[in-house]
Design a protein around this nucleic acid. Structure first.
Lengths: 206, 206, 206, 206
DNA sequence: GATGAATGAGTGTTCATTCAT
DNA sequence: TATGAATGAACACTCATTCAT
């Protein structure tokens, strides 16, 4: 069999199941039935069930971390010449499409979200990737917009909350239950998009 | 043992455990160990594990429904004579203290939140009690405030989102993991309170 | 079912199997097949496999401890009036029939003997019950015999070794493998008996 | 890798583990982890787990057989001219150092000792190498000593038991649990040595 | 010589649930 | 009201072993 194929398939299926039913509600048997392999084969690739989660977590953090770094870099570049409020849009779109709506990231965020009954480390990861990092990033965006006089001076932390919290609410409401269908994604884009539009309009932009 | 005592204790302990570790991560054994009764005794009071959840759900809906109805009634009464924006405060405080921060309601909301991997009915309940009802209620509040000229005319639905989403974010961030300590409650009150204050100040009130 | 029957049967069968094949070579399934019960039933009576061993150990120590105490008491009583070397015989016979040859004690000693690869506590128990206690007891017997002038003065510790070690060798050789048949028991009685006879004859007694 | 290297290492590590934890408590994984090789590699050298034991057994029997033959030959040679009781000493020392205390032989004897729950052939091997052969050899020694008038006429079989059983007890007590440390070896040498000294002194020698 | 990939049978253990008492 | 006794199905995980490469 082609190298790495099986391991990848285990990870794919595991994430899919975990994000739908929750880590502890998914059995090794469930995973193996769908791969499909024998349970003993799974243990050739992973030491135990927890390790599947760990590997998924590492991959998520790599990927999400790379996205965050990229967005910050783009922010710095674009900010140089005054470009109007538009440059925030790119970031938001990337944040939507490559993070909240991206199948892998979306699934993992859902998994984190459900498993908060478990250990602290999961709770902390969820706090980081769902709250801390997005809010910190948005603060920087608004600070820049204010520096350039595009937005009136204000508390950037508060602004980040006002901008991000409706997005978060829409994420929770439309993107964390059942399968991630194109329908749900579209609904999210519209609802969250409306909130963003109004946010900028209220502040005299766009 | 006094009638009803045991059943209540089963419900109390079940909710406590469910809200901390999630429905499926809590075993009948776990519950009975803490009551304490034998497993077979539990089945004298409940047909199966799911029924414990059902009873909790009914009680929650009774209680939360009563609260919502009460708030709506108070809204109608208070609204009659013009009383300034203050009359919204009472509702918000009651929503905080008797709903999001109330041990029973908080626990059940956490339980709903975690079990969305399960069946649709749970998802719908969560949507109702976490999004639909609070947002609908807030819309009415703002409609009234606008009718009375206290708030400038605007899209009340949008306003409700802008008002409620930071509260929801704070709820998710501070009130859904680990035990519900007084510390966490206070933190929530402050963070969510700040958001509300700014919301009204931005709109020329308070 | 009659009270206590099942638990006792589990213990009986477990000891039998453990003493034949060794603790770790016996599976819960093996035990349950012979009882016969379902595996889940076994866990109604015992928390885990180790607890079966623990209970057997407690029972053995109670029983063997009682025997040792009884023999010591009889020694003190009988020693009072001079009765010739005969009084040692009773002790040896009890030690043979109620300890080394007793089905329960024999099985447990075999179990201890085999499981020395495991934890220290098992090793120590084996050392106590196979070496320390028998040798200490025999020392007391010889001290008494010397006090009464029946045996000439000598190092009682050395004497105990000279008396006990052939018995121990016969035990190891004839009583620790396969089933404990009446044939094997008889062979042990004869071989060990001959050693004892010669021991006393060499020292001018009997 | 140099030919034979890997196979030897598998045998060394297997014996070490077997003698510490027992044959069935050691997994192929355990062995391979320490060699270190992949499990499939082990099956290049051995058909199955049992074969590792078989090879070890053959080597043990070769080695122990050679030792026994050598001791018997030395006995015949030395016995010719009258040399006093000393010629027994050499045999005993060799029996200690090259058999009971020799790392390879000691490990294998421990392995045999633990695995008596298994098949008859193992039990028989244990009986041969732990009881039959040592006792037969000792009988010959004493027969010779008696022929030469060094020891008074007596039942050589009984004498062999009296001589060997304390040694066997010390072996069981001090050399069959945990690792074979220099400390344990020394303790054995002293305890067993004392027994031998007293044995000869009691019979007017040394 | 050595390995990567796979497996069937088995391990100890936990689960929600039943039912006669 | 409450329990003692039992169970079938599932659980995560380990075992010795195979075989194509």
């Amino acid at each position: 069999m082609a190298e790495g194929r099986t391991k990848e398939k285990i990870l794919d299926i595991s994430l899919e199941l975990f994000s739908q039913k929750g880590y502890s509600a998914v059995s090794i048997r469930d995973i193996c039935r769908l791969v499909p392999i024998k349970e003993s084969t799974l243990y050739y690739y992973f030491q135990n069930k927890r390790e599947i989660f760990q590997v998924l977590k590492e991959r998520f953090e790599e990927r999400a971390g790379a996205l965050m770094r990229r967005l910050e870099k783009e922010l710095a570049v674009k900010a140089a010449p005054c470009q109007g409020p538009g440059f925030g849009e790119g970031a938001t779109q990337a944040f939507f499409e490559e993070y909240l709506l991206d199948p892998f990231c979306n699934s993992f965020l859902r998994l984190l979200r459900m498993e908060q009954g478990g250990d602290m480390v999961v709770r902390e990861a969820y706090d980081q990737w769902m709250f801390e990092k997005p809010l910190r990033f948005q603060e920087k965006v608004f600070s820049l917009l204010m520096e350039q006089g595009i937005l009136p001076q204000a508390d950037s932390e508060m602004l980040a909350m006002q901008y991000y919290s409706p997005i978060f609410l829409c994420f929770e409401r439309y993107l964390t239950g059942g399968e991630l269908t194109e329908e749900k994604k579209e609904r999210f884009r519209q609802e969250a998009g409306r909130q963003i539009t109004v946010f900028f309009r209220d502040r005299g932009l766009m």
